[in-house]
């Protein structure tokens, strides 16, 4: 007997990913897994299997593409349900694609290429006794920007809060909001925690980081086949009223959890 057909399928697009949710089948059916199928043309392929009534389709790139999804329930005996109805979802376009870079450190390429890369976190306190204070155009990427930003859960970094400050110049006040593009190659698996984001000393919001794989403290290339790293992508608008002509700074103050591992950090204008 086939398990019930999935209902309630819906999806939302994010950077590089699409998240699908649906209504789990009642407990009377013992589910082995849900199989998620995707099509960007007319051919359906298996995007992945999950035990949860949620699936995150990853590695979709940074330019929006609309894809179709449907879900099949497979029960403990190996029987498959009929496919659910189809939903169409697009991933989001990154500001690193749509915008114009003003200042940045790192390459948005899935690799960490900074000071202490790939595994010298033990040298953090000696190398960055006052944390990272980086001035775009003056500082040097692989000397002045640390590959990790520690948090208070990191004994190797003194079990205290840590800040990164990113300074850059503006020749004129921006006429539209700017965007922060903060990409990570990895984060701690259970204690990714959060950080306060501020512009020129004005606190904007708390950014919660997705849990990663706790591998980015020793590995720096998430693009290798089978890499265990779990990258994540954060892009946030920065209100134009907070900027001024001359030097500006954006702070990330990590006051909860453990470390994050940078792919790149930059400020973009909307073009």
């Amino acid at each position: 007997m086939a398990p019930p057909t999935i209902t309630g399928l819906r999806g939302t697009g994010q950077l590089s990913t699409v998240t699908l949710d649906w209504t789990p089948v009642p407990w009377a059916t013992v589910v082995d897994h849900y199989a998620v199928y995707v099509a960007s043309g007319s051919t359906w392929t298996l995007a992945g299997k999950t035990v949860y009534p949620r699936f995150v389709h990853r590695k979709l790139g940074f330019t929006a593409v609309t894809r179709s999804y449907r879900v099949v329930a497979v029960d403990a005996a190996g029987n498959s349900s009929a496919p659910s109805r189809t939903v169409a979802v697009a991933n989001k376009t990154s500001v690193t694609v749509s915008g114009r870079p003003i200042a940045r450190v790192g390459y948005y390429d899935g690799k960490g290429e900074f000071a202490l890369t790939p595994n010298r976190s033990a040298d953090y306190l000696a190398t960055f006794p006052n944390d990272v204070d980086y001035t775009y155009g003056v500082s040097v990427r692989d000397r002045d920007w640390c590959y990790l930003q520690p948090g208070p859960s990191d004994k190797w970094a003194g079990s205290k809060n840590h800040r990164v400050r990113f300074r850059f110049n503006l020749a004129a006040r921006p006429t539209t909001d700017l965007d922060l593009a903060l990409w990570l190659i990895d984060s701690h698996a259970s204690l990714a925690g959060s950080a306060l984001l501020s512009v020129n000393g004005t606190q904007l919001e708390r950014i919660a980081f997705a849990n990663g794989a706790t591998k980015g403290s020793t590995l720096n290339d998430s693009t290798l086949p089978g890499s265990p790293l779990k990258p994540s992508y954060i892009e946030r608008p920065l209100p134009r009223r907070l900027f001024k002509v001359g030097q500006n700074f954006v702070d990330l103050y990590k006051d909860t959890g453990s470390w994050i591992a940078f792919d790149a950090f930059g400020i973009y204008a909307r073009s």
């Binding site: 082995d32 035990v51 949860y52 259970s190």
Partner: peptide, 18 residues
Amino acid sequence: LYGIPPKLFVHRRAVAYR
């Protein structure tokens, strides 16, 4: 421990117990 919300995690627990 890894931040999987309880309403999702129970589905994993179900197959693990099974």
